[in-house]
Amino acid sequence: MLDRYQRNSHFLQQVNPTLKLASLLMVIFFMVMVFDPLTPLILLMITIAGVSILGGISLRFLLMILLPFSVFAFSFIWINVVFPDERGETILFTIGGLAVAKENLMVGLSLGLRSLVFASWSLLFVLTTEPTKLMLSLIQHCKLPPRFGYGMMAAYRFLPLFRQELKQVRAAHRIRGLGEAWGLGARLTETKRYMIPLMASAIRKAERVAIAMESKGFDGSRDRSFYYVVPWTRNDAAYAVGLGVLYGGLVLLRAQSGG
């Protein structure tokens, strides 16, 4: 599923991963200064629309991911109502003797929406970026040392193997009569039991891969050739201009409404 979205040829998938990563950090720094609910709401709508139109990702799929996340977002609202920094003056209504002030509700709403904005931009990045392309882009444009870049890619390739390994360890434990865990406490001790064998085999595999890489002449130096080059294209310029317009518009809007 993830794979299919990352590989299709819509606009967002063509943008250089480095630039997308920068835009992801940008939105966080922008939102840190915002405490009204309107700005994050507008930004959230624009982002969701943008991801689904420019990234070719179905709206239903996006909302399905964001829905469980809103439980987390909701916590900001109730905590701000129950434990505010300073209680607001406009009391809307009271629940069991607790006065709910409009100001606190608004700030809580803003913080909740803020976390949803972060989530939507994260989805923009994650759903449209191929892992390999990201690493190559970081090596080629961000001066990430190839030793780290390729080392990480190698380790990342182990992930499917880990799943297989976990199955094996589980089967081995079961055949020795350790049985299956029921309930949360048993699950936790079970995880502890799986962790050490899994990590031990991960370390062994990693050592072997490193030796193989070195024996094939990988020395981690910067002057090397690349089979895949991640270029800067016109799409990147368009994306950058789009970001400029988006943030310019938001700043203008905030200045107009006096917030």
Partner: peptide, 9 residues
């Protein structure tokens, strides 16, 4: 490199 790959994994 060995330490990097092991650390990464």
């Amino acid at each position: 490199l060995r330490e990097i790959v092991v650390m990464a994994s």
